[in-house]
Amino acid sequence: MSEMPTNATADAAVTDQALQPAFFDWLCRMGDNALVLGHRTSEWCGHGPVLEEDIALANTALDLIGHTQMWLGLAGEVEGKGRDADALAYLRDAMKFRNFLLVELPRGDMAVTMMREFLFDAYHHLLLAWLSENSSSPRVSEIAAKALKEVSYHLDRASDIVVRLGDGTAESHRRMQDALDLLWPYTGEMFTSDEVDRAMVTAGIAPDLEMLRSKWEASVRDILEEATLKAPDPGGYAHLGGKQGRHTEHLGYILAEMQFLQRAYPGASW
């Protein structure tokens, strides 16, 4: 997928040995969220409810895979063991994946697909906007700025569809409310800090997640209200563990499909 950039921007964080384990983990989280959600979204290719939505979903999936290449490419550089984005995407086992549980859940119907995208995009957009403006790591800022343009569109599109379907027919409303109730307990993980997150905040690389949470809740609430959907109480039960490598049974199936070719035919390319 990617090669080490030869004229990369100078960035002390990339070679900071003390920072390295946490920085590598955090970059894997960024890359794996994009990779797994991108893969889930790509499952709609050829199965969309209408041609136009099918193409829009495939575009979104491709955007996310593009972000994966950048994040995992940088993760490989930081790790310094010669692994590139391909090696990290195709040759890591499930326990080494650092994505949220939210993004690995099955794609469900269009309600689950678009509600998940909306809930994730609202977080993703806030995070990338902060990173592009404020991150102490120039390489992280660069990647965030590139991804932000695409994610702004993802968020607009997903918000629009959430409002249309939530405030649509009785059936579309019911499906969207069901999707929201199903996914809501998985959103807490995005804002639950661990030692990796705290190390990134201390280094000035990434933002404080509590600060993101309050902004996220405000923007998500506005859209859900417009969509006539009832948001479950914040601060309820949160499914955790994905960021630390403890996944649902669903991730294994994704990786089996995604990694099969490289596992069966190592180094295959076309």
Binding site: V50, L51, E52, I55, A56, N59, Y153, D156, R157, D160, R164
Partner: peptide, 20 residues
């Protein structure tokens, strides 16, 4: 040409279908 329920979504679809 493309199908869309209204003008706003037609613009979004056009962006996805024709300006990639």
């Amino acid at each position: 040409s493309l199908h869309a329920p209204d003008a706003e979504m037609a613009i979004n679809h056009a962006r996805d279908v024709y300006t990639r």
